[in-house]
Simulated scan of single mutants.
Amino acid sequence: MPLVIPYPDIDPVLVTIELFGLSLPIRWYALAYLGGLLIGLALFRRLIARPSLWPGDVAPLNREQAESLLTWMVFGVILGGRLGFVLFYQPGHYLAHPGEILQVWSGGMSFHGGFLGVATALILFCRLHQAPLLQITDGVAAVAPVGLLLGRIANFINGELWGRTTEAPWGMVFPGAGDIPRHPSQLYEAALEGALLFALLWLLATRRGWLKRPGLVTGLFFIGYGAARAFVELFREPDALFFGPGNPYGHAIRFTAEYGLTMGQVLSLPMILIGFGLWAFTRRR
């Protein structure tokens, strides 16, 4: 019998507020999103408060514009994350039940969808404010892993997105995942996509002058996240996919499954390629 670390059964609801006869649960997952955005904003402000870090010793945004950018990113994360889950993972189900698409409270968010939503929000924001896109994305990329760190810890608290079965001494038995020890893959992702990637990007942005060359930090974020996610997918239980009739991606899903790939790896590959493309573009400039 392999050694098992007890799973810390933490209530996903931090506190429930009773207000006018209604119960309002405050969940760790929602606090992770909120905390990631607010901490990210505070760190982004620190970057723009140091003009010497940026090209021409001029920060790309002022404090008020940075706060406005946060609002755009909130909508990008929520709408993109939800629509990404619908389109990437369960299109057949939501085609049959379109009324459930906007039911965010029912669960189902995709990082890659949230990433596309944020990218769209950044492009629109920069066009509206005539701001340098690559400089803005560099600043956002340098602080984004903080949100990933908190989000993966919230996944662990929720007891979701657990790993594959394992005999490793740090395996855990997750509620709802049977009685077999599994990798705590949420913590692997928190460490790699969150803590390690943040430390690397922050060091390069603030100590090595990478913000002086727009696109370098963004490119490394793409490469770092894509590689870390693809690696952790080796230990994470693959996401459940809808194979039934009505799924427009049925053949593509079967093709990737036949070659041992997960949806997370398939979606991470374009990020890695884009990252290397940005590096090549920046070095040519």
Rank of each mutant, 00 (worst) to 15 (best):
G35E: 00
G171Y: 09
G250F: 10
H93F: 15
Q265F: 02
L196P: 00
R254Y: 05
W105P: 00
N247R: 06
P55N: 00
F88G: 14
R27I: 08
G107F: 12
P270Y: 08
L34K: 06
E233K: 10
A252D: 03
F235P: 01
E64Y: 02
A141M: 04
R182K: 04
L216F: 05
P181G: 10
Q130V: 14
H112L: 13
A32F: 05
G194A: 07
I48R: 08
G108Y: 07
A168N: 11
R236S: 11
P245A: 14
V77N: 00
S106K: 15
Y29S: 05
F85A: 14
L150I: 03
R207S: 08
H93Q: 13
G108C: 12
P184M: 12
L187C: 04
G151Q: 00
S106I: 09
V104K: 12
V146N: 11
L43H: 03
I180E: 03
A96D: 12
A230E: 05
A280W: 15
G56W: 04
F88M: 11
A59C: 04
R285H: 15
A257F: 08
A121Q: 07
I48S: 06
G264R: 03
E233I: 13
G107C: 14
F276I: 15
V74F: 08
V4Y: 03
L267N: 02
Y225Q: 11
